[in-house]
Amino acid sequence: MDELFYFIIAKYNYWAALVLLFIGLFGMIVKNNLMKKIIGMVIFQTAILLFIVSIGVKRGATVPILQFSPDKQPLLDATAYANPLPHVLILTAIVVGVAVLGVALALLQKIQRVHGTIEEDEILEDMRK
């Protein structure tokens, strides 16, 4: 029992990220409404970001901003700070996500204007005409 508990504790974060990832993917693939697809995309992307930030976590570590001792010397114990590199990557990736979101929403407005709907099957019908 202790084993299992330990196993769950050690991995649950990755699982949650993967579950969210597939929820998002489900939304992107199966949903008929394009807005829902975009929401699925947002969830999908954040799930990946969550996964990557999880890499940077260290037990007992603080935020990756250096602390100083009273005599102004930085405390440089690498195990005391969370891994900064995933944070940097994710910062960039969040920005990319917003950019894609903006473009997707702009396209959505245009689709509504051209086809009069944002339901995928109706659009396909409209295009066949």
Binding site: Q112, R113, V114, H115, G116, T117
Partner: peptide, 9 residues
């Protein structure tokens, strides 16, 4: 107003 919303492509 679906038709009125349409933009001529």
């Amino acid at each position: 107003s679906d038709s009125s919303r349409k933009e001529t492509p």
